[in-house]
Simulated scan of single mutants.
Amino acid sequence: MKRAELYVLAGPVGVAAYGLIRLWAKSDGVYGPGFDWQAAHLVALAGMVCFVPGVLALSRLLPRSPWRTGVVILTMVGLAATVVQFGADIVQGLLAVDRAEMSALGADFKDIPGVELAVYDVVPQFFFLGLVVLAGMLAAKRRLPWWSVPLLIVGIVLPVVTLNLLPVAGLAMLVALAPALPALRQQGERAEPPLAVR
Rank of each mutant, 00 (worst) to 15 (best):
G70S: 12
L195Y: 10
L61K: 02
V13T: 14
I73K: 01
W37N: 07
S103I: 10
D98H: 10
L117F: 04
A88P: 02
A100H: 12
Q186R: 13
V132S: 03
L165K: 04
S59H: 03
L94H: 15
A17W: 03
V15W: 00
V97L: 09
P33T: 09
D89L: 07
A40V: 14
D36S: 04
F109T: 12
R60F: 10
I73T: 13
R142F: 13
A25K: 04
M1Q: 05
T69C: 02
G136C: 03
L61R: 01
D89W: 07
A80C: 12
Q38M: 10
D98W: 14
G87M: 05
S27T: 11
G29A: 02
I112E: 00
P124T: 10
P194C: 09
L74K: 04
A81L: 00
V30R: 01
L6P: 07
G188T: 04
W24R: 09
M137E: 05
F126K: 01
V8T: 14
N164G: 07
V13Y: 07
Y7P: 01
A57R: 02
V8Y: 04
D89E: 14
A139T: 09
L195K: 08
V119W: 07
W146T: 15
P145A: 09
V91T: 12
P33V: 06
A118V: 00
V71Y: 02
V119P: 06
F35L: 09
I112R: 02
S65Q: 05
F35E: 00
G34N: 03
L129S: 00
I112L: 08
F109Y: 14
M48C: 11
L131K: 07
M48T: 13
G47Y: 10
V43R: 01
P194N: 03
D36C: 07
G78Y: 06
S65T: 01
V97W: 05
P150I: 14
L195P: 00
V83M: 02
I21H: 05
R60N: 07
V157Y: 06
G19Y: 01
L151K: 03
L174R: 06
Q92F: 08
L144F: 15
L94E: 14
A80P: 03
L166P: 09
G34Q: 06
Q38N: 08
V197S: 02
V149A: 12
L181D: 12
A118L: 04
L74P: 04
V13L: 13
R190I: 05
P182S: 03
